[in-house]
């Protein structure tokens, strides 16, 4: 079951990544980032990195995507303007870089983890506070709401400062 989910997610990721770089219109490229992020989120969930998964969804899928979209709409790029300096050379260089990256990853894919490391990692996970699993939401939440609660609450004051500053610097004269 999880193998099937991984295959689906991986295919979605690779396909949408291809679509991101190959679209003429940058707005389409940005829109195809969404399935890409969704696929990545699925892979993170399969790896038990639930916190990373939710952050991937909230920060990348939510904030960064919208910022990209805003920027592209603000500078108002037309596809035909973009096409001209997108020459064969740059295709070639990107393909070369992508090939190198793939080759490196293929070389090291099976060397990274040995059984010994996995055992160590598992024992490190087991000794975490409150029995929370490393990388899980609990292991982030306990320090955030217990040990470091004060700085976390003070961050809200910082956000108030930022909000007031934005108003002060952009408000029209009244």
């Amino acid at each position: 079951m999880s193998d099937l989910a991984f295959i689906v997610a991986a295919v979605v990721c690779v396909l949408s990544a291809g679509l991101i770089v190959s679209r003429k219109n940058p707005v389409y490229s940005v829109v195809f980032m969404l399935p890409f992020f969704l696929g990545m989120t699925t892979i993170f969930v399969l790896l038990n990195a639930t916190f990373l998964a939710s952050i991937q969804m909230i920060v990348y899928g939510g904030a960064i995507l919208v910022v990209f979209l805003f920027v592209i709409m603000l500078i108002n790029l037309r596809p035909e303007e973009l096409r001209e300096d997108f020459s064969m050379l740059s295709w070639f260089i990107s393909a070369l870089a992508a090939g190198l990256l793939a080759a490196t990853m293929a070389l090291f894919a099976n060397r990274g983890t040995t059984n010994d490391m996995e055992v160590k990692f598992a024992s490190a996970i087991a000794t975490r506070e409150h029995g929370a699993i490393f990388g899980s939401i609990e292991s982030i939440a306990y320090p955030l709401f217990e040990k470091q609660m004060i700085p976390f609450e003070l961050a809200s004051v910082l956000i108030v400062v930022a909000t007031l500053g934005a108003v002060l610097l952009s408000k029209k004269r009244v």
Binding site: I150, P151, L154, L158, G165
Partner: peptide, 28 residues
Amino acid sequence: TGMMLLAVSHDFLTLLISLEIMSISTYI
């Protein structure tokens, strides 16, 4: 507020956040 928090913070994380509260207000 940031200055007062900074003067009594005893934890590097609190210190950093208080410092930013003070600094960002003064930048603006």
